[in-house]
Design a protein around this nucleic acid. Structure first.
Lengths: 229, 229
DNA sequence: ACACATTTGTGCAAAAAAGCACAAATCCTC
DNA sequence: GAGGATTTGTGCTTTTTTGCACAAATGTGT
């Protein structure tokens, strides 16, 4: 599991879904999309579990938190279940994303096709490097690519306001990540995906998820070392 | 439970460290490296916890699983603790990494500096695209960049054998990820970092860690949606 | 209509993780 | 060297997550 979030929802009417469940919903959604593409109509918990690498009991319990969308003795309707998950996760909205840091990683993220196809749209690129500012970078994968202008970091607040970005991606070097994060928060961003290898401290109510490539390799190395003995 | 602090490095049975703890060790290691760079000699659990975003009690319990490396009333010696963690995680070794899939993401990973600085070295690049095979790609960040030849996917087994790669990174499109994974495993790789948005099924004894960028954004979107209400 | 084969949804148990609180160990001052 | 101020290491409690087993609900065939 990549990272944690510090959430602070204070409403009592939502039927609180556990964090562990939430972290698995995207995998279910992806597998269901796959099945839908293959024109499969129904799926059992056993089959969907195998596709996503969880146990069928856990899958059923996860889904039961969303509602009773299956039929006993039959299974789940692929399209229907997919829609329910997408609605629950807010994927019927279009989420605007601003990427700060247009280095190798930032550019790769901008190109990444997986975003656009699932309700996410990169609407702004920001960097501090004078040689990058003003240049154009291709965004989105095959199909519909858009060229986006790289804006100056000093214009961050304006860019967020104009584009109405809700999600911020920090793809800067480690030493500028906290400063960038602070400015994102001040500009109204309350959900941040952090690729910089540092812990970001943010005020209550702001969620940060961290993706640390080196950490993942280190965890693998740890287990690999144990195997050798 | 058996907190045996044996002076001998290799005591038969290793005192199982929980997965949750292992997943936090890289963050501790990074923070300690940072402190070491700043020439700080000692650090308290409180301070290190703040740097890594965990509670001080949890940090102490995590570290206690490695051994009793702190001094009551004083704290931990930065260099010493850092060394102990690096040893425990096998970061004193050099880990050879093969990257399969040299698209935008694969190239960004190859460039990524965070790998080289922590005991990981990209030793081979492999792709199925005929137009990429034979081209050279710069690896590693500032300092020492190396140019690596992109090998054909059909040579995967040979490349792994020659380079002695132990870790495999899958950065291919979703539909070829499972096939690539199978071949990595057959070639002897037992630790895989998967960036493709699919679940990889692997035989027992093989570890897979998944990094899914779209999933991370979806999880953020879920929480973001709840905030709006 | 009725027995039967499936498959979901869920109560309960087990395991894992996180949090609390304090004794034990160390340093510092006088 | 005694006493007070810290700070670790850890037993215990609470919360979260996972796993098991089966009743409830649905479809099928005779």
């Amino acid at each position: 599991m990549p990272s944690k979030v510090s959430s602070s929802s204070k409403d009592g009417n939502s039927p609180k879904i556990s964090e562990a469940t939430v972290s698995r919903l995207p995998a279910y959604y992806r597998a269901l999309s796959q099945l839908a593409d293959a024109a499969q109509v129904r799926v059992s918990s056993e089959e969907l579990a195998a596709l996503t690498g969880v146990s069928s009991a856990m899958l059923r319990k996860d889904l039961s938190h969303l509602g009773s969308y299956g039929t006993r003795g039959v299974g789940y309707e692929v399209e229907f279940l997919r829609y329910q998950i997408s609605r629950e996760m807010g994927l019927n909205h279009d989420w605007s994303v601003v990427i700060v840091g247009v280095g190798n990683l930032g550019r790769a993220l901008a190109h990444y096709g997986g975003f656009g196809s699932r309700g996410f749209r990169v609407v702004a690129l920001v960097d501090a490097d004078q040689t990058l500012i003003g240049t154009k970078v291709k965004c989105g994968a095959e199909g519909k690519t858009v060229e986006l202008l790289v804006h100056a970091l000093s214009d961050l607040e304006d860019v967020i306001k104009e584009t109405n970005a809700r999600l911020g991606v920090v793809a800067t070097p480690a030493d500028s990540a906290q400063v960038v994060s602070d400015r994102l928060v001040k500009a109204g961003i309350r959900s941040i995906l952090n690729f910089a290898p540092v812990h970001l401290s943010v005020p209550e109510g702001v969620d940060v998820r961290k993706v640390d490539l080196a950490s993942e390799l280190q965890i693998l190395a740890f287990h690999e070392q144990r195997k050798a003995v």
